[in-house]
Each structure stands twice: as C-alpha cells, then as structure tokens.
Computed example of a mutant assay.
Amino acid sequence: MNEQHYDAWPIGMRTFSRLSVTVKGRPVTVAASASGEGAGDELVVLLHGLGCTRESWDAVVPAVDHRRRWLAIDLPGHGQSAPLPPRQADAIGFHAAVVVELVRQLAPDRVHLVSHSMGTAVALAAAPDLPGGAFITVEGNLVARDCGLISRRIATQSRGTFIRSGFARMRDDLIASPDADARFWGSTWFACADPASIWASAASLVAWCDSGALAERWSRLTDRTYIWGEHTGPPGHLGHLLDGVRVEQIAGVGHFAMIGNPIGLQQAVMRAMAPDGQAST
C-alpha cells in the first residue's frame, strides 16, 4: 500500500507536506500545499503549468471553504518535488498517474480539477480514473496550437542540448522579457525546475496535443469551464471544442491570471464548482 509521509507546518491558512506514492513500481515524492478540511468529501486538485510550481495557486485558494479541501502539488521535476524518472517517455502520463495515486489515498467522493496550461493535459489524462467533479482549465493545452512558442521550442531541441544550454537560455530570455508575468515566471518558478524534467514534460505535452488525444478527452467531459485572460484574447482557435462549455474571461490579465487577478480567478473557479453557479464557500 502506498504511504504518505508528512512534514507539515502552517503557511498562513495552508500546510506544507511531502507526499509519497508508488507509480509504475517507482517511489515518487512530491511537495504539496493543502488548505481547509471541508465539511464534505469534495477535493479540489490544483495543477500548475510547465515550469511553474504549486505556489502559483496560493493567492487563488480561498482562506475559508467549508465545503471542500484544496490540494496543490509540485509536479515531478518542478518546485520542490523530485525529478521525473530518467528518460521518462510519457511525462504527462506519469504526472497524471501521480495525481491519481494521491487522490486515491485521500479517497474523496468528488474531485474538482483546476488546471493551468500544461496542467490541463495532466488533468485530462488523470480524469477518467478520478471521481467526477468540475473540470476547470485556465488557458489549458487542448490542441497543437496551444503549445505556442515555449513547449514546442523546448521539444524541438534534443534532450542533451536543452539540458546543457537550452534551459539556461530560456530562463534568461524569460527574465529579460518585457512582459512582467514572463519575468516573474522565469525568475521565480522556471528557474527552480529540473531541466531534464522540463524537457521531458514539454516533449510529452507536444506529442499529446499534436495527436488530438487531449481534445478528444476534453470533449467527453460534461462539467467543463474554460477560463481565459483578457489580454490573451478570445480562444477562437478552439472552435467547436467550446460548444456547450462555460467560458469566462478574467479582466486585465494574460496567460497568468493567477498573477494579475487572483481574486477574479478565484471567483470564476468557485462559480464553476458551485452547483448553482454562485461563488459560495
């Protein structure tokens, strides 16, 4: 049976833990933040994007939620979590398996998945093996075009080249960017990631997007919300994939809504999870 090992202390309204699971015969330890016990058996799992960390969600989590528990993790190779296993061929699938095992240990009746960017691919890969709940994506990867310049730029480099020089070059480019969100991302989150894990995650993400598998999984879901930033612009490239989907715009932000308008994002997430569409706790 998988075990959880806790080394916890309070961080405001949150706790920090190191959680251990076994995935495909390998022990995996990830860093996690949790908030709220919740009155029921609903769990909110927060999944960050490529080169980000669980802290990206800190300002989005409500101080009090009587209905739900919240859990944000550093995916393998990100933040304070251990790197991916060497030469991991399907990093997205591995990340998803970690999420599934963690949720199985917590044994909630219902799981809401809230994801950003690459985290949406992880959530879609994990969703079929989790108790159903709301699926909420913040500008998540669904199709090939969503890979944009970052993940595809990484994936087109060889693994060795990216580890030797590509990672540092991309970090420096982000830090020097005229965009404030990119500078924050590069200096605060991306800089602490494991280069090999970033390359494997990007390569796997591009493969999943290009194959059409993510769009297909997205179309099977029933309770879906797509959130986009005003500065990014409407997600018109998704076309019919947004038919019948709740779509919300977060004012005054681009790709990183959790940086520029965390309260607006929090309210949108809470509305998406509430049965009556109201942002209640």
Rank of each mutant, 00 (worst) to 15 (best):
E3P: 04
Q4V: 09
H5D: 10
Y6H: 14
R14T: 08
T15I: 02
F16T: 06
S20H: 01
V28E: 03
V28L: 07
A31G: 14
A32Y: 05
A32G: 06
E37S: 09
G38W: 04
G40C: 09
E42G: 00
L46D: 03
G49F: 11
G49Y: 08
G49V: 02
G51S: 08
C52N: 13
E55D: 15
E55G: 10
V60C: 08
V60R: 00
P62N: 04
D65Q: 13
R69I: 10
W70N: 05
A72L: 14
P76M: 11
G77K: 03
H78W: 04
G79Y: 09
G79A: 13
Q80I: 12
D90N: 14
G93E: 15
F94N: 01
F94W: 03
F94C: 00
V99G: 00
V100L: 05
V100M: 02
E101N: 04
R104E: 15
A107P: 00
R110M: 13
V111L: 02
L113T: 04
L113F: 09
L113R: 08
T120G: 12
L124K: 06
P131S: 05
G132D: 13
V138Q: 08
E139A: 14
E139L: 15
N141P: 06
L142S: 12
A144K: 06
A144Y: 04
R152W: 02
T156I: 09
S158Y: 04
R159I: 05
G160H: 07
F167L: 09
D172Y: 10
S177N: 07
D181Y: 03
R183D: 05
F184I: 15
W185I: 13
G186L: 11
T188C: 06
A191V: 02
A191F: 03
A193F: 03
D194S: 11
A200V: 00
A200T: 01
S204F: 01
V206T: 13
C209Y: 00
S211F: 08
S211W: 07
A213P: 00
L214D: 01
L214H: 03
L214P: 02
A215F: 03
E216F: 06
R217I: 07
D223C: 06
R224V: 02
H231W: 07
H231L: 14
T232Y: 09
P234T: 14
P234Y: 12
G236K: 02
H237M: 04
L241V: 01
L242H: 02
D243R: 12
G244H: 12
G244T: 15
V245R: 02
R246Y: 05
E248F: 06
A251G: 10
H255Y: 09
H255R: 11
F256V: 11
I259F: 15
N261W: 04
I263F: 10
Q266S: 15
V269C: 14
M270L: 14
R271N: 07
M273C: 11
A274I: 01
A279V: 05
S280W: 05
S280L: 12
